[in-house]
Design a protein around this nucleic acid. Structure first.
Lengths: 118, 118
DNA sequence: ACATTATATACCGATATGGGCATATGTCAA
DNA sequence: TTGACATATGCCCATATCGGTATATAATGT
């Protein structure tokens, strides 16, 4: 077996820095391929390939506009990453340090009657 | 050129699900290799290899205890992932939806006189 | 019909992966 | 010393990557 396909996961898709850059650009709004080519200074076929990966994991949507293809961000598949990594927050954040953690978490569960979404 | 090495990044290291599992186990406390082998039902050499990757990106620390090697979590390298993915929260969270976003963010900046860390 | 522009795909090469098994290294106990 | 246990490393294979170049596909303008 080899490494998992880049199209398996958002985890795998996003491990490639250029794909993260693409998403960063798209987060400001939809863009045709050539914009990305110019902004990121990459060859066009490379951008198209990266976009394919991003599309296959659902991180971008496409829309035809004349001879252009407008790509837009769809962050949904990033949620699992966020959820997973969030549970480790305590291991770098001061606020979640050592003994305080219990108290802190009690406090949180109270505060969570505030902004639960989804 | 090929895909970036798994040891390049936390991004790359963590793209492999078994490595995430290892971290999940270690988040409860340090463990010798054989514990991981048993808990995750993987062959010992495989676990050792995954641990090597995790060590090289700084996600785990090792400590010798007799003939065992105790591995422990070090979440710090995960922070960049968290920071990056956090900026996309709005694209899946109800709370950050569309027009509300401005109002919502204003509200946040007020609330942020609450728990800023680091 | 043709040329131009925008994008996608095909093919190639180099590389390093994850998992398999076998073996080396290291530590303790009799 | 010898043996048992714990872990790391070496070597093999199949695979898919990223990037490059060349070409296909598609839409527009003349």
């Amino acid at each position: 077996m080899a490494r998992a396909a880049t199209t398996t996961d958002a985890f795998n898709a996003v491990a490639e820095p250029r794909r993260r850059q693409i998403l960063d650009v798209l987060s400001a709004g939809e863009r045709p391929v050539n914009d990305l080519v110019r902004l990121l200074r990459l060859r066009q076929p490379l951008v198209s390939k990266h976009l394919r990966v991003l599309r296959e994991v659902g991180l971008v949507d496409v829309r035809d506009r004349g001879r252009q293809r407008m790509y837009s961000l769809n962050g949904h598949p990033l949620k699992p990453i966020h959820d997973w990594v969030k549970t480790y927050e305590r291991s770098w954040s001061r606020r979640f340090d050592r003994l305080d953690v219990v108290l802190e978490e009690l406090k949180e569960t109270k505060e969570d009657n505030r902004g639960n979404d989804e």
